[in-house]
Simulated scan of single mutants.
Amino acid sequence: MCGNKPAGNVLVKLFDEDDGPDPDDLLDSGYTEPDGTFELKGDTTELTNIDPELRIYHDCNNHVEQLTLQLCKREWVIGIPDKYITSGTVAKKIMDIGTVNLEVELEDEDTSCIH
């Protein structure tokens, strides 16, 4: 949601966050439906445990005034708990993040102009 309206057409991406010189692996991406819902899934091959995170790029409550900066989106990063990580390519447990109001300002949120 963005306030009291569904947040449709919002870019959402599922990444495996990697430390060091290894770039983060994009597992899946898409846009929210007109009603704000979405579904992402992905798998990867790693030598160590994966650290999946959901990244949401949105304009809700974005107060950027300059035209060139309006292309920049607010970026939310939400870590996925370990209990949703399974071996193989088919998830055994699905995470439901529920209804989220994107108006909220997260303490450590960022802005992304390249997403």
Rank of each mutant, 00 (worst) to 15 (best):
residue 46 E to Y: 01
residue 12 V to W: 04
residue 34 P to C: 05
residue 27 L to Q: 04
residue 8 G to N: 01
residue 45 T to H: 03
residue 14 L to D: 04
residue 40 L to K: 02
residue 10 V to R: 03
residue 33 E to A: 15
residue 17 E to P: 00
residue 15 F to D: 05
residue 11 L to P: 02
residue 17 E to V: 14
residue 25 D to A: 14
residue 13 K to S: 13
residue 46 E to T: 11
residue 41 K to T: 04
residue 25 D to G: 02
residue 40 L to M: 04
residue 35 D to Q: 09
residue 37 T to C: 10
residue 32 T to K: 09
residue 10 V to N: 01
residue 41 K to A: 11
residue 24 D to K: 11
residue 18 D to H: 13
residue 21 P to A: 12
residue 21 P to T: 11
residue 34 P to A: 12
residue 19 D to C: 02
residue 42 G to M: 04
residue 9 N to C: 00
residue 41 K to H: 09
residue 28 D to N: 12
residue 39 E to P: 01
residue 17 E to N: 13
residue 30 G to N: 07
residue 20 G to T: 07
residue 32 T to Q: 08
residue 40 L to Y: 04
residue 31 Y to S: 10
residue 10 V to A: 00
residue 35 D to C: 07
residue 12 V to G: 01
residue 42 G to P: 02
residue 19 D to S: 14
residue 23 P to R: 11
residue 38 F to Q: 06
residue 43 D to G: 02
residue 16 D to A: 12
residue 31 Y to R: 15
residue 44 T to M: 02
residue 43 D to V: 01
residue 44 T to I: 11
residue 32 T to M: 10
residue 23 P to W: 07
residue 15 F to S: 03
residue 25 D to S: 14
residue 30 G to H: 09
residue 41 K to Y: 05
residue 38 F to E: 07
residue 41 K to F: 05
residue 17 E to H: 12
residue 25 D to Y: 10
